[in-house]
């Protein structure tokens, strides 16, 4: 197999005396949906925050390789650069939208860096030059494309905070996709969704993987989502990786069964 999209090596994160993530290693492949699962407090979100730069890991390497072989050492990069140059997008466990701004505005902000360049860092924008107008139009079209794709076009001009919960989750994914990522990190995307919405999410994620060629890394509690769409599952418990493989492999791994035993999963 080719070089993995993301390669996490001995990732360790300590908060004071607490080791939340303890030398975890795994790979994420370009054409895969990779899921990180584990009981509460297993260190999933912490690992996620290290990958997306919101925490600086205590130890370990996180290497991202683009299709053109350019390599990014994420553990050394500032959070916003990880999205800007390494092209890793993320969503949040408790949705973080710009609530007072409309759906369309949310999607335009995701294209900030491109639009800033097009507006010559505001100089050309002030005078509304034709090249800026073109860039603005293209950005709007991209926003419309993703609104269509996740099915919230009719709410384009409503403030994000007014959207129902499921639509907010979709908007957050659309917003992340508007940054043109190579890796999309989703923190519990199915949390709070009803079964129909979960199903729609599965379809959306599959199509993002297949048509946009974006690698997906997700944390999820909803096993129906995880088992159905994941090509590759990593199981964490108490900050350590206890299993790694396909859905079937993981399901039959005694270590996983032990970790989940007594934990009622639904």
């Amino acid at each position: 197999m080719s070089v993995p999209l993301l390669s996490v090596n001995n990732l360790t994160m300590r908060f004071g005396g607490l080791t939340a993530v303890d030398s975890v290693s795994f790979d994420v492949h370009r054409d895969h949906i990779t899921a990180v699962i584990g009981p509460n407090g297993a260190g999933k979100t912490t690992a996620f925050n290290c990958i997306t730069g919101f925490y600086k890991p205590t130890d370990g390497q996180i290497v991202l390789t683009h299709a053109d072989d350019s390599v990014f050492k994420l553990e050394e990069m500032e959070d916003f650069r990880i999205s800007q140059t390494a092209k890793v997008a993320r969503t949040f466990q408790n949705i973080r939208l710009f609530g007072g701004m409309t759906v369309l505005e949310n999607l335009m902000i995701a294209q900030h860096n491109r639009l800033m360049r097009a507006s010559l860092y505001t100089l050309a924008g002030i005078f509304n030059t034709p090249s800026y107008q073109r860039a603005q139009k293209i950005a709007k079209e991209k926003a419309e494309f993703w609104m269509d794709r996740v099915g919230i076009t009719d709410r384009a001009d409503d403030p994000a905070a007014a959207l129902p919960y499921g639509a907010q989750r979709k908007l957050e994914i659309a917003r992340a996709m508007c940054t043109d990522p190579v890796l999309l990190c989703l923190d519990e995307p199915a949390a709070g969704l009803n079964p129909r919405e979960s199903e729609e999410l599965n379809t959306l994620l599959r199509s993002i993987r297949d048509t946009n060629k974006v690698g997906i890394l997700l944390i999820e509690h909803d096993m129906s989502v995880v088992m159905e769409i994941s090509d590759h599952i990593i199981v964490l418990d108490y900050g350590r990786k206890i299993s790694d493989g396909t859905a079937t492999e993981v399901r039959n791994d005694p270590a996983v069964i032990k970790a989940y035993l007594g934990v009622v999963e639904d």
């Binding site: 959070d79 916003f80 949040f92 973080r96 710009f98 902000i109 860096n113 940054t179």
Partner: peptide, 12 residues
């Protein structure tokens, strides 16, 4: 509105 979301979108 949300500084952390801004950073996640690559805004300096």
């Amino acid at each position: 509105e949300d500084e952390i979301a801004c950073r996640s979108l690559g805004i300096n």
